[in-house]
């Protein structure tokens, strides 16, 4: 319930009205949206029970390692209602050909694969929020100084998921395990997303915001 009340309202894309529509404009709008979402996500992390009990160094380590997984889960969650689009925001949806035109085809394929998986499972909001918090807690950051504290943080989230599933879906005894088994695909998807945005940055056509670049650099 703490995660439910802490979930931030979805952001809207803010395309520059003075720029004519183009694939580059799509990329600029997307990068701006993701940078704002990252900012909101860092604020959100502080509301995950147990997060601010970790040392500042470990909070940074978990965020630097797991931030893209949480952004990916947000997009995948918003895309649950669609059969072939990625819904980055209510007013920023990309289908396959739009993604390809913008140079995001690999990102599209990866995110749609994970989206379909969760669609088949009928992921609900409580599960998504718990997985999102887990993706930070379980981000396998290097140089964690308080390994025991991080472990407790993970255990509490795992316990919440198990308690939720045994209360809400007592007949599906494998539900929690099945959800945890999606985490490797989430990591793989986030890795592909990081590669995609690193490539965009290196190509130099899309200026990226400082925070987004700082976090991207921590992943490379």
């Amino acid at each position: 319930s703490q995660l439910l009340v802490s979930e931030p309202a979805p952001l809207r894309a803010a395309p520059d009205p003075s720029t004519p529509d183009s694939d580059l404009k799509t990329l600029l709008t997307l990068c701006d949206l993701l940078n704002r979402e990252l900012l909101v996500m860092i604020g959100w992390a502080k509301h995950i029970p147990g997060f601010t009990g970790l040392s500042l160094v470990d909070q940074m380590a978990l965020l630097q390692s797991g931030w893209m997984e949480t952004l990916v889960l947000n997009v995948v969650w918003r895309s649950q209602g669609s059969a072939d689009e990625l819904q980055f925001a209510e007013n920023l949806r990309l289908n396959e050909s739009q993604s390809r035109a913008a140079g995001l085809h690999d990102l599209y394929t990866a995110l749609r694969h994970l989206t379909s998986k969760y669609q088949q499972m009928g992921l609900n909001q409580e599960e998504m929020l718990t997985l999102k918090a887990m993706s930070l807690a379980n981000s396998d950051a290097e140089n964690v100084e308080g390994a025991d504290a991080v472990q407790c943080f993970q255990d509490a989230l795992h316990e919440a998921l198990q308690e939720y599933e045994s209360g809400q879906r007592p007949s599906e005894s494998h539900r929690a395990g099945r959800l945890l088994m999606t985490l490797p695909l989430l990591r793989q998807t986030a890795h592909r997303a990081v590669r995609c945005f690193s490539r965009l940055h290196m190509e130099g056509h899309v200026p990226m915001h400082k925070l987004f670049l700082e976090m991207l650099e921590a992943k490379i």
């Binding site: 860092i42 604020g43 965020l63 400082k210 925070l211 700082e214 976090m215 921590a218």
Partner: peptide, 15 residues
């Protein structure tokens, strides 16, 4: 932490 100034500030200073 030098390299990750913005994140460090955001975590230290609240929202």
């Amino acid at each position: 932490q030098e390299k990750h100034k913005i994140l460090h500030k955001l975590l230290q200073n609240g929202n």
